[in-house]
Amino acid sequence: MNMSSLVRTGAGILMPFLLVFGFYIVLHGHLTPGGGFQGGAVIATAFVLLMVAYSYEIIWERISLEFLKNTETLGLMLFILTALIALVAGLAFFGNWLLGAGGLFGTPVSYGINPGDLNTGGVIPILNIAVGLDVLGAMSVIILTMLFAVRRDA
């Protein structure tokens, strides 16, 4: 079941903007409103837009279920590993072991009201990316599995 060419063209035009917006929300989760969950949901919405616009066969050929499953598992593993490394570093579970270290995401924050720096936040941006991958994979897998379960002629 192919939608009309108007819908397909609109989906194609909207797709990159949705992806950029979603990844922006994920990456700037510690500075601006949003976070991993919201950004992942926006990216999943972009995929769902594609699934709604194009026909069953094209989706079956282009989008791999295995890839999305692996994305979700990767996100979950990254989340738990980041939380576990805090134990090795001598902090509590989910402790912020990158905070103020000076390396990746470790620039000390200037307190008070400030425009914000992307390279702050310690472990929070990593957890954001992990949850973003997790939510993106999970939502897409749910919709894609439901779509595959529907017969094409139904």
Binding site: G29, H30, L31, T32, P33, G35, G36, F94, N96, L99, G100, P108, V109, N114, G116, T120, G121, G122, V123, I124, L127, N128, V131
Partner: peptide
């Protein structure tokens, strides 16, 4: 937490 967004700081830290 080092994050400017307090909501994300609460959710993730």
């Amino acid at each position: 937490t080092g994050a400017n967004n307090i909501v994300t700081a609460v959710v993730f830290d």
